[in-house]
């Protein structure tokens, strides 16, 4: 519609229209993932409810949300694996789900649950997977050393999958998603279940991919992961997007800059009587009171006089935003 409107104005002001044309064209070309008013229900429950997304080339975009927020369903919709009830979708300028198969030629996917072929070696897994993209064996074999290097698995080339550690399997799954040299990579909870060393290595690799200009769309419920990796992120809850911005902007927009966590046996009593006096906002969860403040000094001075209470003073982070927006109650 926009392009049409520009075309109509062409006759009046050709030079200006040309610039507008170009801007609209480049925006279209650089939009890798586009979703408009996406809806999906299962058995009457809206799992994805009016979602809008515009993800640009080279961006690392995060989908955050508690369990059941609709993150995985969103990824499956974008890949064309399930059909939306309504809404418009495109992936790499292919309409989805209609042309999803064509789009997936240029996409790599790291699924939430490992589904490597247990009967094959590391190298065989990559070879067999590359064939699904219509690649020739020689073409895949030429990429193997680079992929194994990227996954730190060169020494495990001929190892069987059941002998690999969780971190190695995850890295192999990531390498497998790169076998076709994709433009876009979908990662569904890429570091869930990994130890800190393994997570850091995955993060390093994902940053390298972003540096190469790949577009990443990842879901996670690790706030530190989202804060470190994502240029922009969206917080989803019950299928709706409740916030979207860069991690820093989300923190600045939604929450006071400093947090004082106060712990102790009688913290609930203290909070009820005193916390409101010293903080803009506070929440009590178990034996901890979270006090959100612009200036922490008066509160800290006050706490010095309380021997029974201990505290931690820190800058506000994404987890504070997340808990504020999605609430503290359990989602199961």
């Amino acid at each position: 519609m926009k392009l049409l409107a520009i075309r109509l104005s062409w006759q009046k002001t050709p030079a200006k229209s040309l610039v507008m044309w170009q801007t609209a064209f480049y925006k279209m070309m650089s939009t890798v993932i586009h979703a408009q008013n996406l809806q999906k229900s299962y058995a009457g429950v809206r799992v994805v409810d009016g979602l809008n997304l515009d993800i640009q080339r080279g961006e690392c975009y995060g989908l955050l949300g508690p369990n059941g927020a609709g993150k995985t369903t969103t990824l499956r919709l974008l890949l064309g694996l399930i059909e939306p009830d309504s809404g418009e979708l495109s992936l790499l300028n292919h309409a989805v789900p209609h042309q999803a198969r064509e789009a997936r030629v240029r996409v790599g996917v790291v699924p939430q649950m490992d589904n490597l072929d247990p009967d094959f070696t590391v190298a065989e897994n990559l070879l067999v997977y590359g064939r699904y993209f219509g690649m020739q064996d020689a073409e895949i074999e030429a990429r193997l050393p680079m992929l194994l290097e990227f996954a730190n698995l060169t020494h495990k080339r001929d190892a069987k999958i059941p002998t690999l550690s969780g971190g190695m399997k995850r890295r192999l799954t990531l390498a497998r998603a790169l076998v076709n040299d994709p433009d876009v990579i979908f990662l569904d909870e890429p570091t869930t279940g990994l130890d800190p060393q393994a997570r850091h290595l995955i993060w390093q690799r994902l940053r390298e991919l972003t540096a190469q200009g790949k577009t990443l769309l990842l879901t996670t419920h690790f706030m530190d992961e989202a804060e470190r990796l994502c240029h922009r992120l969206a917080i989803l809850d019950q299928g709706r997007m409740i916030a979207q911005a860069s991690p820093q902007a989300l923190i600045a927009q939604h929450i006071e800059p400093q947090v004082v966590e106060v712990f102790g046996e009688r913290v609930a009593e203290w909070a009820q009587q005193q916390a409101a006096q010293f903080s803009q906002r506070f929440e009590v969860s178990g034996e901890t009171a979270f006090c959100y403040v612009a200036d922490a000094q008066p509160l800290l001075t006050h706490l010095h006089g309380h021997q029974a209470l201990r505290y931690l003073h820190r800058p506000a982070n994404l987890e504070d935003v997340f808990l504020k927006l999605t609430g503290r109650e359990m989602r199961e």
Binding site: E102, R104, V109, P111, M113, N115, D117, Y129, Y132
Partner: peptide, 14 residues
Amino acid sequence: EQRTWDAILNTPVT
């Protein structure tokens, strides 16, 4: 069990 189909469905195979 092995979710081999899930893995394949993420490629340009239907």
